[in-house]
């Protein structure tokens, strides 16, 4: 595993290195108390202009686990998730303080290539968002960007990704059909296939089932359990039962009202094993939320 991590670090750090898999010496020592974590947020605060969306969050995300972020609307869980692959970069006014360490490398270090970060840390969005292209071209999009040109190689990647997303049997006879013609649940699995086609290490899921019916939701949840042996998953969800069902660890966020400005800032209340968060949480606010008395 250490070799893999070393390769990850080196490739993420050097944007000029054309050989993605080149294993070079890691020139930064992992910092912080948990060197085995995939992600570690250290005093992470995110601002939109002068508005503070998340303040001072600290947590570590372990490999091959499913970590769920729960909490009421506006608590900053999606904002926090989007720091993990620098998706917040595209918002003009965003400012990040503190650090997000990915295998010990600060993702917000100026030397880090954000494009490479997003290739290694995939994302599945709230609303299924397949491209208006064929099923095949949707999945092949990422690999093609990465320079894969040979048809046989692409065919193999597409098949593997669609099988990985439990969609292959449903679409293998119509790979050339538009991805927009699939049902909502199928579209979301297509998006998962598109994400895993570039072989990321982590998959971030931003309320991936909120637009789906219960059956489609169950399929995605089953799929998450299947793929967690290969990927580390972080999921934001509004659905507490979903967090309880699928996740190994849970982070509970809530909003704090700033008495001076009357604006709400998100903060991380409690983070721990899912069973602890749901059965005997340490914080009263967590207990109120998971028992349905708040939010």
């Amino acid at each position: 595993m250490n070799d893999h991590n070393a390769a990850t670090l080196a490739a993420v750090r050097s944007s000029s290195d054309p050989e993605r898999n080149a294993v070079t010496e890691v020139d930064v020592a992992p910092t912080g108390p948990d060197p085995h974590a995939v992600f570690q947020a250290v005093d992470l605060s995110v601002y939109y202009g002068s508005f503070c969306a998340v303040r001072g969050a600290n947590l570590a995300i372990a490999q091959h686990e499913i970590t769920a972020f729960i909490g009421p609307s506006g608590c900053g869980k999606t904002t926090m998730l989007r720091c993990f692959n620098r998706m917040n970069d595209f918002i003009e006014t965003v400012r990040v303080e503190g650090s997000v360490l990915y295998h010990g490398v600060d993702l917000y270090d100026p030397a880090v290539n954000s494009t490479e970060v997003r290739r290694r840390i995939g994302m599945v969005f709230q609303k299924p968002n397949p491209f208006p292209k064929s099923i095949y071209d949707n999945v092949a999009y990422g690999p093609r960007l990465g320079g894969v040109k040979k048809k046989a190689e692409l065919d193999e990647i597409v098949e593997r990704a669609l099988k990985g997303a439990a969609l292959w049997d449903e679409v293998k006879s119509r790979l050339k059909a538009s991805g927009l013609g699939l049902s909502g649940g199928q579209q979301q699995r297509l998006c998962i296939a598109r994400a895993i086609a570039v072989d990321p290490e982590v998959i971030l899921m931003d309320e991936p089932c909120s637009a789906l019916d219960p059956i489609a939701t169950a399929r995605i949840e089953d799929l998450m359990q299947e793929i967690k042996t290969k990927y580390t998953i972080v999921i934001v969800t509004h659905n507490m039962q979903q967090a309880a069902r699928v996740s190994d660890k849970t982070a509970f966020f809530t909003t704090e009202v700033n008495t001076e400005s009357d604006r709400r800032t998100g903060c991380l209340v409690e983070f721990g094993p899912t069973s602890t968060i749901f059965s005997k949480p340490n914080d009263e606010r967590t207990e109120q939320y998971v028992t349905g008395r708040f939010g």
Binding site: G122, F125, N129, G142, L145, R194, V198
Partner: peptide, 23 residues
């Protein structure tokens, strides 16, 4: 959402414009 999907698999801005937004 389509732009984000493209960025999400590691596409640069230029690739996103040419391969996703323009088509």
């Amino acid at each position: 959402a389509l732009r984000e999907a493209s960025y999400g698999v590691g596409a640069r801005k230029s690739a996103t414009v040419i391969r996703v937004v323009l088509p």
